[in-house]
Design a protein around this nucleic acid. Structure first.
Lengths: 115, 115
DNA sequence: TGTTCATATAAGTATATTCTTATATAATAA
DNA sequence: TTATTATATAAGAATATACTTATATGAACA
């Protein structure tokens, strides 16, 4: 049920700039498959926790991800309320699934689960 | 006849970074509607000729536009041979047409035509 | 040939981006 | 309450980006 609303060039450029970083683009693809918490991202990327936090902050400031606290963890996921939600899912559609990365975390016992 | 080949995350991020600039994104949308020469871009954007030239250089280095010299002018257009061609046309599909800008140039007698 | 017009490149500058380390905040558990 | 764990923020540094002006190149034409 995609509406194909016309998008504004400037705000689209801003969203594309957010996606135009390897780390953030990978994060977005991961979140399109599963919500994910900060420490999982830290384990997935060889990068400090503040660096991860800062990338997530940019995505949140851009309104394209949302956060949910679940006890001590904060889970990030794509924000389906964003006016760019369907745009983003289209853009990342043909990127390779990152599921294997989460599977690796699982094997290492580093996957966070709040069920 | 889109093949939907799987795209590499890193090179996709690089293409998205190229699109993630208001000037370049507008240029790309314009080129998706018409080929365009450098001096037309200079007239369309309030920006120096070298600035325009440098943006076009980045797009060319990224392989997503191509150039064709026609007498003293160099016309730029989307490169249909790029592995990102269909990706890019999808990304810009719902952006507002920039045809009106070219129409304005035409009215001002600034449109370059080599027919 | 020399001049003009279109475009590219070089060099420099201001600002933005993306990290780092150090520290603050906030929830949980002993 | 205190310690621990998860996350965010602050400050600073290295690098990248996007302009500017000056100059080079290259085609067209008198």
């Amino acid at each position: 049920m995609q509406t194909n609303q016309e998008l504004d060039i400037e705000s689209t450029a801003n969203v594309l700039k957010l996606l135009g970083d390897k780390t953030r683009l990978t994060m977005i693809k991961i979140m399109s498959e599963h919500e994910c918490c900060v420490c999982e991202f830290v384990d997935l990327f060889e990068m400090s926790q503040p660096a991860i936090s800062q990338h997530l902050r940019k995505l949140k400031d851009g309104g394209i991800v949302k956060e949910t606290r679940r006890s001590q963890w904060i889970f990030y996921s794509l924000n389906p309320s964003s006016s760019f939600y369907s745009f983003i899912t289209t853009v990342i559609r043909d990127l390779p699934s990152q599921q294997y990365k989460l599977d690796e975390l699982e094997v290492q016992g580093k996957r966070i689960c709040c069920d």
